[in-house]
Simulated scan of single mutants.
Amino acid sequence: MANLLNAKQTTLRERVVVSGVGVHSGKPVEMILHPADANTGITFLRTNREKGTELEIKGTYQSVIDTRLCTIIGHPEKGMIATIEHLMAALVGYGVDNVLVEVDADEVPVMDGSSRAYIDAIDQVGLKDLSAPRRYIRVLKPVRVQNGDSVGELLPHDGTRFDVTIDFDCETIGVQTFNEEMTPAVFKRDVSLARTFGFMSDVERLWAAGYALGSSLENSVVIGDDQKIVNPDGLRYEDEFVRHKTLDAVGDLALAGAQLLAHFRSYKGGHKLNFNMLEALFADDSNWEWVEASITKRNAARVDVSHANSSIQAAMGPETN
């Protein structure tokens, strides 16, 4: 199992604070990442200091309530947290199994539009191993979803691979593909710096509708009406666009509740397609099984099948296409 770099579950060594603005509200956001116990997964805590209320939201696909502009979890009336995909990508892509994410607003801070600020926060405090073995969700047979010309597949694979293709009718983007085995090192080096992107005409339309009020050249790659990049510093990667779509996919699929052992392929995908992939995967228990890592006497990681076809609900608890 090539990407089992750590057979034990992890959490943060201590809490760390990340502050920024919400990409849609433009308002200040403070987020605190707290260490968490084994088998608790990624949980969000929406706090409202003015009202003195708290709402706990599991970081799983069952909590998703909208995928139109970003991935939003929670409850329309009780409380929600938007734009979680970049943070989820950083946590799962970098090997964090358990964490409590405390947020004092309806959005995660957008930072620079990538996952790097979250990676830096994790590096600041470091990770620690927990006593429980790491758990994975292994895909057993092909699962396919098609939404118009957007297509996604999850295929059985001895590892975690992302194969993402985008196709834009824009000379600056065009057709781009990212296809790599996803390890913490690959995620940090090749994916985490890729920023969200959009077209100036779309940004202006969103501003007029009261969205993307925190969006700027400091946290987005913007393409002008002349199909040229507006940002003075240009791109961080030559194919930054597809790498950001890959980042989004890593974050959205992290809502499975554990790292997937699968080969994920998508063409012209987005948040909706990624969410639909998880719905399709868990719609049939024969599509998947739980596995967990074990440590041999030589401290080599291996994977054992456990709780095959168990209920994911029992196990985990209650960008535009």
Results as ranks from 00 to 15, higher is better:
Ala7Lys: 08
Arg13Lys: 15
Val16Arg: 06
Glu30Ile: 10
His34Leu: 13
Thr47Pro: 00
Ile57Arg: 11
Ser63Trp: 00
Ile73Glu: 05
Pro76Trp: 08
Glu85Cys: 08
Ala89His: 01
Ala90Met: 06
Tyr94Gln: 12
Glu107Trp: 01
Ser114Lys: 07
Tyr118Asp: 11
Ala121Trp: 00
Gly126Asp: 04
Ala132Ser: 11
Pro133Ser: 15
Arg134Trp: 03
Lys141Gln: 06
Pro142Met: 15
Pro142Asp: 13
Val145Glu: 07
Gln146Glu: 15
Gly148Thr: 01
Gly148Ala: 15
Val151Phe: 05
Arg161Gln: 15
Val164Ala: 10
Val164Trp: 01
Val164Glu: 03
Asn179Met: 10
Asn179Arg: 13
Asn179Gln: 10
Pro184Lys: 12
Phe187Arg: 08
Lys188Leu: 03
Lys188Ala: 11
Glu204Trp: 00
Gly214Asp: 03
Leu217Lys: 06
Val222Ala: 13
Gly234Val: 06
Asp239Pro: 01
Phe241Ser: 07
Val250Leu: 05
Asp252Phe: 02
Tyr267Ile: 12
Lys268His: 05
Lys268Met: 10
Gly269Arg: 02
Gly269Pro: 00
Asn276Arg: 12
Glu292Gly: 13
Thr296Glu: 09
Thr296Phe: 03
Asn299Trp: 07
Ala308Cys: 05
Ala315Lys: 11
Glu319Ala: 14
Thr320Cys: 07
